[in-house]
Design a protein around this nucleic acid. Structure first.
Lengths: 329, 329
DNA sequence: TTTCCGCATGATATCGTTGTCACATAAAAA
DNA sequence: TTTTTATGTGACAACGATATCATGCGGAAA
């Protein structure tokens, strides 16, 4: 910057003013400065800028894995974040809470301007630690401990359960099963509650023994296929709380010689890119990731002014995507 | 830091020395400093540190998409990078060269310590721009213009083509087809050349009309299924240059009523997580992503001392993964 | 003419670190 | 005892930006 000033024959102050554009500079000097910048191929030092302004100009993303649907979320968040002139710093906390801990410390040290947080479990040390700072945070997808003052962005999980139930029972299934995610996650409880309640409200049956507890993984779906269908079963339809388990279930049923959807109807949740690629393609309860990510970023960057009175908890409605994996029994 | 110094009754210099640990400090003062740090919950400011040391302590990742196999790569790179005490800044350049351009500028402005570069196309402005800086760069996966002085990490693509050919012809297929990626990518040419050459060397046939040009997407595979099999065809096996197209092909064949692998054998490339999840599961030519990512990071962070004489171009050998989608005709 | 205001610009302090230099003290060598 | 050496510590400059304050200058109002 000093060099630029020298070449243009002005002071660094003036160079700074030309760059920021927020103050009046005579056109003659301004153009001299601009050509000096071009000549030297000058690029501002964001480290120095950040030090001065106490803002690193990035958004941190804490995420419990890189598999779908998180990959999709990462891509979307990156897009919105960079569009706002920020950069995305992301950390995968799958490997454990220590990793989460050092990542959060790093984010604080780097003076991130906001954090999108999707924790592995509810017992995270991150929140109390962050409370001591002025870093805005959005609890994303996996919401817990929703204190009033923290913004949350998530699916309306109970509605998702109800939607799946209405679809399957509506198709004519009388005896259904389900595979849940990790039971310590609120979202799983909510989805299960919605599903269970709607199934019984509509007069169909969900036996307690037909509720399989999974962990959102392909292998959990595989295992569930054994647990549910290795023996003769009256179940004709299954809702898996995410697509990965649904796909595992389909894969397991194929090995058992059951046909989907002829013998068993399957519905997933998320609508990951692969849902349309499987054979048969997967009917699923879609999460509106685009809208959710946009909301998360604009909450952090302060695009929507959530005045004190405004709602800080955003619950997005799921949407049913009909494909091939479910039909009438 | 000043506060810490005050509480501990020492100067900031001493605090700095205690933190860095690289200079002798009397144990008494050191422990006083440490307890002051704990008491204030002091965290160093990485922006200031970076400004002083001209190093932002991160690695930039330029990648042409967030879908597989890039998601896997991102996860792996993040792991190795953070393990080395750095952070990962990543940018998706799928949306075009302007995005790539501003991302590269951002990386320079942030004083990244290295860049893992996987460009969309060969005509990228990034390399010349980066040449003016002292930022180390590794060309990853998509290698081009491999000047001697730049490190490259990639699959041995010709070997991948040969491996696929040997497998399919070895199974007994006499007439094969293939789907390539974007033809302007060197890696596609190399894969095609290896495949073509090995097929004819082994005495089987790859007709020019049975070479479909794709773009690595699911839909390209879908389209290829029409182009290759909508009419009667003597082709009994197809190699797709990546798994996504192979899965699209399988999906398309299912719609055409062809069975895989009974009617057509299919082999992919990459071995993305979903390759084992499809029905039938996908046989594929595996890229050793773990080793490749580890190599990329350690080259950048200078863990392996590539002395001037040492090889700067790393080509990793592919590995055949036998699953269900290919069999003898 | 004097006074005052607005405008473009420069000098300088500051952000939170680390590195360089100087200095005091104590121990070792003369 | 005097000189040297080693050791721990503090003061201060620097990294590259921005923000605050001061200043010179031209024109409008008195």
């Amino acid at each position: 910057m000093k060099d630029v000033a020298e070449i243009a024959g002005v002071s660094v102050s003036t160079v700074s003013r030309v760059i920021s554009g927020k103050f009046a500079v005579e056109e003659g000097t301004a153009s001299r400065v601009r050509s000096a910048i071009l000549q030297l191929d000058y690029r501002p030092n964001l480290l120095a800028w950040g030090l001065r302004s106490r803002s690193g100009k990035f958004i941190g993303l804490v995420i419990p894995g890189i598999h779908e649907p998180f990959a999709t979320m990462i891509g979307l968040l990156e897009e919105y974040v960079t569009r706002g002139g920020y950069s995305l710093l992301f950390g995968n906390t799958e490997s454990g809470p220590e990793k989460e801990n050092i990542f959060i410390d790093d984010l604080i040290s780097r003076h991130v301007d906001g954090i999108v947080f999707s924790g592995v479990s509810e017992k995270s040390l991150a929140l109390p630690k962050l409370a001591g700072t002025d870093i805005p945070i959005v609890l994303f997808d996996r919401v817990f401990n929703a204190r009033e003052n923290v913004v949350t962005v998530a699916l309306n999980n109970e509605a998702a359960g109800r939607l799946a139930a209405r679809y399957l029972v509506g198709l004519g299934h009388r005896r259904v099963a389900t595979i849940t995610g990790p039971p310590d996650l609120n979202l799983c409880k909510d989805r299960l509650h919605g599903f269970k309640d709607e199934v019984s409200r509509l007069g169909a049956a969900l036996d307690e023994r037909d509720i399989e507890v999974g962990d959102f993984s392909f292998d959990a779906g595989l295992k569930a296929s054994q647990a549910l269908f290795a023996r003769k079963s009256a179940v004709t339809a299954v809702w898996a709380q995410n697509d990965l388990m649904a796909i595992g279930l389909m894969r397991g049923l194929a090995s058992l010689g059951k046909r989907v959807p002829r013998d068993v109807s399957i519905v997933g949740a998320d609508d990951i890119p692969f849902a349309r690629m499987t054979v048969p393609s997967l009917s699923t309860v879609r999460q509106p990731f685009e809208a959710m990510c946009r909301q998360a970023v604009s909450s952090l960057l302060g695009y929507d002014d959530l005045s004190r009175s405004a709602n800080r908890h955003f619950a997005f409605d799921p949407e049913l995507v009909r494909r091939e994996s479910a039909q009438s029994p």
